[in-house]
């Protein structure tokens, strides 16, 4: 079989999804996810992220296209592909009358694995659920329920894990624990595909980023390359005396006036030779333009994302 290391763990080709209502959720998606990486799928609400994940996991049927997981077709070879996949869905959906232990054991069995109490114990301990193992789901807090969803998704030791908006509405502790678990999984060779609205996290966690909008992949790139290519830095100066226009002496600088002339912004590429800040400040001094405050910022993935979507 075609399972040599070069085969992508996930390969999506020409996938379309049109609902009976006429809505096109996916308009021809091509995507490859590499073995062992953390891949972040970014896009606004309704971009098709959840639809794509649902198709790969088998809860939604695609209209056209092929998807392979570890070289196996997800329709023809669904037993093999689905046993390899774990999904933490966006919504918490779990039998609320079951106990934590029972529901996690249920998931493991459902995905075709022989019982392994030792593994489930270590899983529950990793997710700080061990003390709650005999509690019913209905007795747990929202954050605890989310931990249960993660435990269920990992119960059958998947090699490809999907996290759909994992940190939406999640407190700081859980988010930290979750990323710790994700890092540990990656060390074990598990491939992780996540969608998130916390873009700094995608930036911090993901090896590569794919941007999706209106059912199409706009770009897939190494996170670092993307930041290099599209990243900008900005310096914003709060002026002591508002200006009506940028003085002609500063015409050579890429400047803009904001807030009715109270702020002056200077933008530049992260990798430009010499940022020119020092020269700009010196020039401002020479021209007698005083400022009360100075703020520098780096454009986030969000800015990059917005500019990409606007361009498309």
């Amino acid at each position: 079989m075609s399972t040599e290391p070069t085969t992508p763990i996930l390969s999506v080709a020409g996938v379309e999804k049109r609902y009976a209502s006429g809505l096109t959720a996916l308009a021809g998606v091509d995507l490859e996810v590499r073995r062992g990486e953390i891949f972040a799928l970014l896009g606004p609400n309704g971009a098709g992220k959840t639809t794509l994940i649902s198709i790969i996991c088998g809860t939604v049927t695609m209209t056209a296209g092929t998807i392979r997981v570890d070289g196996h077709d997800i329709v023809k070879d669904y037993r093999r592909t689905r046993s390899a996949i774990g999904l933490v869905p966006q919504e918490i959906a779990v039998d609320i009358f079951a106990t934590v232990w029972n529901t996690v054991r249920f998931s493991r069995g459902l995905f075709g694995c022989a019982p392994n109490p030792a593994y489930i114990e270590s899983l529950l301990r990793d997710l700080s659920l061990w003390d709650k193992r005999d509690s019913k789901i209905t007795e747990l807090s929202g954050g605890m329920k989310r931990r249960v969803m993660i435990a269920k998704a990992l119960s059958h030791e998947p090699t490809l894990l999907f996290l759909d908006e994992p940190t939406a509405g999640v407190d700081v502790n859980l988010r930290r624990d979750m990323w710790a678990v994700v890092r540990r999984l990656r060390e074990r060779g598990v491939t992780i595909v996540l969608t998130t609205h916390y873009l700094e996290e995608a930036e911090e966690m993901a090896d590569r980023v794919g941007v999706i909008d209106k059912g199409r992949i706009l770009l897939v790139e190494d996170t670092a390359d993307l930041m290099d290519k599209m990243g900008k830095r900005r310096v914003t100066l709060a002026l002591q005396t508002p200006m009506t226009a940028i003085p002609p002496e500063l015409a050579g600088w890429p400047l803009e006036l904001l807030s009715d002339g109270q702020r002056l912004r200077y933008s530049f590429d992260t990798h430009a030779e010499g940022t020119g800040i020092a020269a700009l400040l010196k020039r401002l001094g020479e021209l007698g333009i005083d400022f009360t405050d100075l703020d520098t910022e780096r454009s986030s993935l969000e800015d990059i994302f917005i500019s990409l979507v606007e361009r498309a």
């Binding site: 996991c57 809860t59 592909t81 919504e91 959906a93 459902l110 995905f111 075709g112």
Partner: peptide
């Protein structure tokens, strides 16, 4: 009931 609560998706995504 699983349809109502949404837990059906786990069954649908299982290798079953």
């Amino acid at each position: 009931f699983p349809k109502f609560t949404g837990t059906i998706s786990e069954i649908l995504s299982a290798p079953l």
